[in-house]
Amino acid sequence: MRSKRAELLVGCFIVLGVAALVYLAVQVSGLAFSSKKDTYQVVARFDDIAGLTSRAKVSIAGVAVGNVESITFDKDLYMALVTMNINSDVDNIPTDSSIAVLTSGLLGEKYLGFTIGAEEEVLKNGSEIYDTQSALVLENLISQFLFNSSSSSKSE
């Protein structure tokens, strides 16, 4: 009888541990359990990427549509060459769209944000985005912060 109770409690313990892992994965890291999405790769060259890292998100209108695959140094042009993965279902980004290194909040991480262009032709696997904006300078950062805080106070 005593060992039955012990088994039950051990069972609870293990289930709780696994539940904690699932909870952390889903709620904390936002890991989606959908199968790995199909993506296509585009590249962009920046003068200055500041603190952008690989795996940073790529967004349109603030919605994540992909992530940064790799960042390398283009030796010939002295620029940063950023390769990113864009979800295949987002297949209508015009080729003249511009892309900028942005910061989420004052202390937040760097990410890439698209500003959509007007061209008929869309980005495909291997395309390059020519219109790039480097990481923001301090003034822009402050203005963005003010914009963010005013918009978040509006939403409350």
Binding site: Q27, S29, G30
Partner: peptide, 24 residues
Amino acid sequence: VYDGAFWSSMQQSVYFDTDIMNGV
């Protein structure tokens, strides 16, 4: 603290394989 911002700032910066798995 705003609930949605609390979770989203977490989800944006926490990666399952580098953060959670490295901790494990």
